[in-house]
Nucleic acid binder design. Structure first.
Lengths: 205, 205
DNA sequence: GGAATTCATTTTGAATTCAAAATTCAAAAG
DNA sequence: CTTTTGAATTTTGAATTCAAAATGAATTCC
């Protein structure tokens, strides 16, 4: 992390602070104050806050200030709807082009949990890793720029914690098998169903 | 446009300059120079360039500079793949909730072209309007923030000009009819097919 | 003649300054 | 006692300044 540009380091720091609730939803981010706490000036901080705004983590109200974004229920629903089709696309593309090594890496995500589901924290991390890898293996550079759609994962409602491993592990395995079989449409349908199921649980309409 | 904040006016100005090729792909955007031409300082210009970077219109190379983005063929393919599923989702949602007035507005987009297809410029504008309206009528706020996916339209390869009205008008009409009938899955399939067809034409693999 | 090196110039990244708008708080009016 | 007004303070938006890195050109070396 030390070799990164200042703005990139700052970005990771502030993002972490928001995801860890060190900065809480609704809280005003007074630029001079936050910059001082972080040991920088407003210039790089402002860049970071603007970037986080496009990721739906910060909200800017002109001439009023920047706030940690409080996601409304409808926005969470909207994100899940988008994720379902974008990650469905990812799974289809991954099925068409994943190498044997990449398929192994997907299987490895959940290997530790086949016999022991008890560590929910570790399972949630594996879940995030699984979704990230499929987007990466899609080979679609645009998908991988849509950070906006991946941040939901990371907030209080951890996708991996919405449902138990008992429910989601079989879904994950069936997605991996469709990708391993090179069956794009099947992989797409399964991924889409998987995310829609999580979304429905989060928002029972 | 006069009542907007400076950054928002500047954003529209610079975006227009890029889309009109007044600033050409690959061109370096020297901040001080461009700011002076636009009668502002670097601060607001930098915000604008950063925003355009998230929209895939500008590329930033750290400590080197900002450049008008030259989209590679693979990136255009990637954008079309994403658009196909996101606008497919939009059409499905619009089918589920569009009002009679909204459906009329969709029909009105292409009313001028039923008997006369000759004004391609006007048809391209109607095409963009049609896609924008469906995203709006989806009621999904996140879709409407993904500007990244709508800019392709506006560059040299105008989606509406990729294929002739003779080809696309029937597709547009069939999408509208699915929405009017409240048939979400049908609207989704048709929109997706419509955009995939344009994408294939642009990139014959 | 061409490659490498040094130095001046340009440009970016970051901090600071300044002006205008928003907020706060106290005093006055109803 | 509540509401309104207005001045002091804070905060944002924008311009400017400063330092460090990158660029480019001239000169030296091979």
């Amino acid at each position: 992390m030390e070799h990164l540009e200042l703005v990139d380091r700052l970005y990771l720091t502030v993002k972490r602070m928001i995801l860890d609730q060190e900065l809480v939803p609704g809280q005003k981010l007074v630029q001079e104050k936050l910059a001082a706490e972080l040991g920088v000036s407003r210039s790089p901080l402002l860049k970071v806050l603007q970037r986080l705004e496009t990721e739906l983590l910060v909200e800017s109200i002109p001439r009023r200030g920047m706030y940690v974004k409080q996601l409304a229920a409808t926005e969470i629903r909207d994100v899940f709807q988008c994720r379902a089709v974008i990650e469905g696309l990812s799974a289809r593309l991954a099925a068409e082009r994943a190498t044997p090594e990449e398929i192994s890496a997907l299987r490895d995500c959940f290997a530790p949990f086949v016999n022991d589901n008890s560590d929910l924290e570790a399972y949630a991390r594996a879940d995030r890793q699984f979704h990230q890898l499929i987007m990466k293996y899609s080979g679609n550079a645009v998908i991988n720029r849509l950070e906006l759609l991946t941040n939901i994962h990371l907030t209080a409602f951890q996708a991996g914690l919405l449902r138990t491993p008992k429910d989601t592990l079989p879904e994950h395995r069936s997605i991996i098998e469709a990708i391993a079989a090179g069956d794009g449409p099947m992989a797409e349908r399964r991924m889409r169903g998987h995310i829609e199921a999580s979304g429905r649980l989060l928002l029972p309409d």
